[in-house]
Amino acid sequence: MSINYLNLGLLQSDCLTLPKAAAQSARLIYGDAPRQDISSFCVAVKPASLLRRFIKPIVEFESNFRIPFKPLPASQSYALLEWGLNWCLATGHFNHLLLHAAVLVKDGQAVLFPAMPGSGKSTLTAWLGLNGWSVYSDEMAVIDLHTGTVQPMYRPICLKNQSIDLVQKWSTDAVLTPVCHDTAKGSVAHLKAHNWQEFSTFSPARIVGVVFPKYDASATEPQLYAVDKLQTFESFYTNAFNYHVLGQASFDILTKVVNQIQGFEVHYASLDFMSDFLTDELLS
């Protein structure tokens, strides 16, 4: 059975064509979300050519007649779809300020996790999501330009390599797409963070803190560093997808947000420590 729309919560994409395996994964992740009235863009993942449909199949991502990426092996179709959706949002959504950061919420208070690849951000996001936190996003903080609150997105968590096994160990009920091997990020699987029923209860959350996490398995003790507001501003600024497009609106809201939150850099080996730290230091 095909899926012809992807309700991302904040907005919706029409889904024109997907390979069978990618459609199955898309249904697993988005299939319980109702259709919105209007779609903001349309996407497709389809064979790159007639020949490559049959010989060493490769597929390409297309959105609104644009093909932004080089083709990938057909076995990576679903990962390509998710990365393509990130691209659609980052390059085409200008109603909110978009930062490259995970967003976790508890008791209506949001903590942002901007981080470089390999820092353990997605693993931490998955763990917190399985332990009482609401995952508003694994990839993109969506900040309201007027209130400075962060909006939820109905997107999965992109797990890489060992974190896939870890999540399966943490929760036998975890809903995961089949693993795509040999991608640019290694082996990749997507974890459904919440079902639609849970997600529909989420509301915009006030940002109370930013944490720059760095997983360090060799660390015997966690290390904490306070991050001052200029560094926080710089980090948000460099991690923003559409700051330059929004101009002064993004400057104004970023200044407001930075002035009302606390910032920390945390080098950690224990996920339990991170949970305690976030609750004790950042949540009021």
């Binding site: 560093y225 991050v227 507001k229 200029l230 501003f233 101009g247 400057f251």
Partner: peptide, 30 residues
């Protein structure tokens, strides 16, 4: 805009659509 922890100021030039950051002190941890 002044940042409330006195770490610096941020400036926005709407004509050039550029943001500038100015640090007051060098005592950052990073």
């Amino acid at each position: 805009r002044l940042l409330t922890d006195n770490s610096g100021i941020v400036l926005f030039d709407p004509f050039l659509n550029q943001t500038h950051l100015l640090r007051f002190t060098s005592d950052a941890n990073h």
